[in-house]
């Protein structure tokens, strides 16, 4: 990949959270290792998907990229500029060029603002040159493009269902014509027919407005449909990184394999599942060696001691000591 194509470059990123010591359980000195040495590059025009177990660090990664969390170590570059240690003033233009759709549609809308105020605000801030009429026209255009009824504009967030609020959040992100959108579970609260509509809107925006996405989702059928490349995370590390087609056709990391096999099927069968046994691996107490070894059917002694790094195997990157044998 040449330097000109690389839009976002994450290098050896670490993020630790220290928990305050006033918790019930004397949480003194407890540390959550949310992200442990993650490196990624996202190219312009991609729909880069991030999937992984709940709690593995996806939202933290997204928030760190957006500058909403500081990094503990490592760096983040956007179009060649280092952005993770910028001053607020230097960061300002990036707050228009990079937009985020948050995971929780309930918490991310200001309850005291009407929908039109919510949508106008970022535009008035970043584009003071626009007239009132231009702002209003833009609001209507964007609302309609994500399938929202313009009669919603004068109402308040609490009057809307979860899915309706999510579509309002998506509209807000698209208001300022961003180049790069970080979308954290943007469609998980939506039913399939609206999901289809919103995904189509997002794909159109990618194709026509040259948008790039970092798209976090746990819905693998959406990844398969929408993603160009996908990174699978487990407990703060990337365990497999591949073109979407490659990953779905032949997952190599045992966690990816588990994930793909757990997709609910519509074949009229009842849910079957291999229950997890014993303690769930925790970011507060990281396993030694490979983070997945406790749940891995292929684990050998080396997996308990040596951390596998991402390496090229069978046309993708995998962090598994036995990636050659898992195919």
């Amino acid at each position: 990949m040449s330097d000109t194509d690389g839009l976002l470059k994450i290098d050896k990123l670490h993020k630790r959270f220290r928990l305050s010591s006033d918790g019930w359980f004397g949480a003194k000195g407890q540390v959550v290792n949310a992200i442990n040495d993650v490196s990624l590059e996202i190219t312009k025009g991609e729909s880069f998907c991030l999937v992984g177990e709940s709690g593995c660090g996806k939202s933290t990664l997204a928030r760190t990229v957006m500058g909403l969390e500081t990094t503990s170590a490592g760096s983040i570059h956007y179009m060649g500029e280092r952005i993770d240690n910028m001053s607020d003033a230097a960061r300002l233009p990036y707050r228009q060029r990079m937009q985020m759709i948050f995971q929780n549609p309930y918490a991310s809308l200001n309850p005291r603002m009407t929908i039109s105020q919510t949508l106008e605000e970022p535009l008035r801030f970043h584009r003071p040159d626009l007239s009132d009429t231009q702002v209003r026209d833009k609001v209507v255009e964007v609302m309609e493009s994500v399938g929202n009824n313009t009669s919603w504009l004068s109402r308040f967030p609490h009057e809307f269902s979860g899915g309706q609020r999510q579509r309002i959040s998506i509209a807000r992100a698209l208001m300022v014509d961003p180049e790069f959108v970080v979308a954290d579970e943007p469609i998980s609260a939506l039913d399939v027919s609206i999901q289809a509509q919103v995904l189509n809107v997002m794909m159109d925006a990618r194709d026509h407005r040259d948008l790039t996405y970092l798209f976090i989702t746990h819905d693998l059928s959406v990844v398969e449909h929408f993603g160009t490349r996908v990174a699978v995370m487990y407990l703060g590390v990337v365990c497999e990184l591949a073109e979407t087609k490659t990953l779905f056709a032949s997952p190599r990391h045992p966690y990816t394999q588990l994930l793909l096999s757990a997709i609910p099927k519509m074949d009229g069968s009842e849910m079957t599942h291999d229950r997890m046994h014993g303690e769930v691996p925790s970011a507060m107490n990281l396993p030694t060696g490979c983070v997945f070894h406790g749940r891995c059917p292929h684990a050998k002694d080396v997996c308990k001691t040596d951390i596998p790094t991402l390496r090229q195997v069978a046309g993708r990157q995998v962090a598994c000591h036995f990636a050659e044998d898992t195919g």
């Binding site: 928990l19 359980f25 709940s54 709690g55 939202s59 997890m276 507060m284």
Partner: peptide
């Protein structure tokens, strides 16, 4: 399936991931 349930017992909601 909350990892480290003993420790998480003492956490505040904002310290948890969305799914937790």
């Amino acid at each position: 399936k909350i990892p480290s349930p003993q420790e998480r017992f003492g956490n505040y909601p904002h310290q948890l991931s969305g799914g937790m």
